Simulated assay, not measured.
Amino acid sequence: MNATPRDDELTRAPMQGAALVTGGSAGIGYAIAHMLAADGWAVTVCGRDADKLASAVRELGPRAHAVAANLARSGAAESVLAEHLDRHGQLDLLVNNVGSGGLASIETKKDKALDLELNLNFRVAFQLLRASIPSLRESAATRGKSNVVNVSSLVARQTPPNVSVYAATKAALVALSNSAHGELSRDGIHVTALLPGFVDTPGASWASAAQDTMITADDVAESVRFLLRTSPRCFVPELMLTTSGPTVLHSPVDWETPDH
């Protein structure tokens, strides 16, 4: 990962834009936030752990801002967006990255786990997108484009056993993104569903046997950088990142006998 720019360099440089990244204190979300900060963006990172967020903001620099919130709670998504706008005054990029997943068969899946995944993986993304549309539309009118990145997963296409709810919610994010393209693209809002395969993050520690073949979080951040650099004419509804294997949808993990 590239070094974070010095604080005085960031203060003098013009701001490239303002982004809100959920699940931004670690893993994919942090890598995206780090990339944005290095490129001169102001960033709001959101998560549940205030200590992790504080540590992340210290590393991201003076244009980073943390909001500790449980996004699964009613009204939390709108409150986080309001705090971002109060701090930065604009929203040019929304990254819906927060999520939850657990290994369980359909037969043994408990309602509490079901509701958590439905809420964090889909409902929160929908609520944040819905609330962000006016700001994103204003940004697109001013800058030529604005962006929404919904971090889905390759399991949306693989639909493996024992992660039925996670796969279903990630597939729902793809459907949401495609529908949003139809509603928002003519306003200059670029909505992309990002479908990475296994990414080497703390959340994938249970699959440590496959670690050497995993995508890095920096790879995912680079894909977001690509989306930000395309012209306003170029829309990317879906972007898939996969690992080596006999097919594009190959997984390095045996979902029926996971290593954990």
Score class of each variant (00 low, 15 high):
residue 1 M to H: 10
residue 6 R to G: 13
residue 7 D to C: 04
residue 10 L to R: 14
residue 10 L to A: 12
residue 12 R to S: 06
residue 15 M to V: 15
residue 23 G to H: 08
residue 24 G to R: 11
residue 26 A to C: 13
residue 31 A to K: 09
residue 32 I to G: 09
residue 33 A to V: 12
residue 35 M to D: 13
residue 37 A to Y: 00
residue 40 G to N: 03
residue 41 W to N: 14
residue 41 W to L: 14
residue 49 D to W: 15
residue 50 A to R: 14
residue 52 K to P: 04
residue 54 A to E: 14
residue 54 A to D: 15
residue 54 A to M: 10
residue 55 S to R: 15
residue 56 A to W: 01
residue 57 V to R: 13
residue 58 R to L: 14
residue 59 E to K: 11
residue 62 P to W: 01
residue 63 R to G: 02
residue 64 A to H: 02
residue 65 H to P: 01
residue 70 N to A: 14
residue 72 A to M: 04
residue 72 A to Q: 05
residue 76 A to Y: 10
residue 78 E to P: 02
residue 80 V to L: 08
residue 80 V to C: 09
residue 83 E to K: 12
residue 85 L to G: 03
residue 86 D to H: 14
residue 88 H to L: 03
residue 91 L to E: 03
residue 92 D to C: 07
residue 92 D to T: 08
residue 95 V to E: 04
residue 96 N to L: 11
residue 98 V to P: 00
residue 100 S to E: 08
residue 102 G to S: 08
residue 104 A to C: 14
residue 104 A to K: 09
residue 107 E to Q: 11
residue 109 K to T: 04
residue 113 A to C: 00
residue 115 D to H: 01
residue 115 D to Q: 02
residue 116 L to Y: 03
residue 118 L to V: 02
residue 119 N to V: 02
residue 120 L to W: 06
residue 126 F to I: 01
residue 128 L to F: 02
residue 132 S to E: 04
residue 132 S to F: 05
residue 134 P to Y: 11
residue 135 S to A: 15
residue 137 R to H: 12
residue 137 R to K: 14
residue 144 G to W: 10
residue 145 K to F: 09
residue 149 V to S: 04
residue 150 N to L: 05
residue 154 L to P: 00
residue 156 A to I: 06
residue 159 T to G: 00
residue 162 N to Y: 07
residue 165 V to F: 07
residue 166 Y to F: 15
residue 172 A to P: 03
residue 172 A to S: 09
residue 173 L to Q: 12
residue 173 L to P: 01
residue 178 N to K: 07
residue 180 A to Y: 06
residue 184 L to N: 09
residue 186 R to F: 00
residue 187 D to V: 00
residue 190 H to I: 04
residue 193 A to N: 08
residue 196 P to L: 12
residue 202 P to I: 02
residue 206 W to T: 02
residue 206 W to C: 01
residue 207 A to W: 07
residue 207 A to P: 06
residue 216 T to E: 07
residue 219 D to T: 13
residue 222 E to G: 10
residue 223 S to E: 14
residue 223 S to N: 10
residue 224 V to Y: 08
residue 226 F to M: 13
residue 227 L to K: 06
residue 228 L to I: 05
residue 228 L to W: 10
residue 230 T to E: 09
residue 235 F to V: 12
residue 238 E to G: 03
residue 239 L to G: 08
residue 240 M to H: 12
residue 250 H to L: 01
residue 253 V to I: 15
residue 253 V to L: 15
residue 255 W to A: 11
residue 257 T to G: 02
residue 259 D to G: 13
residue 259 D to F: 06
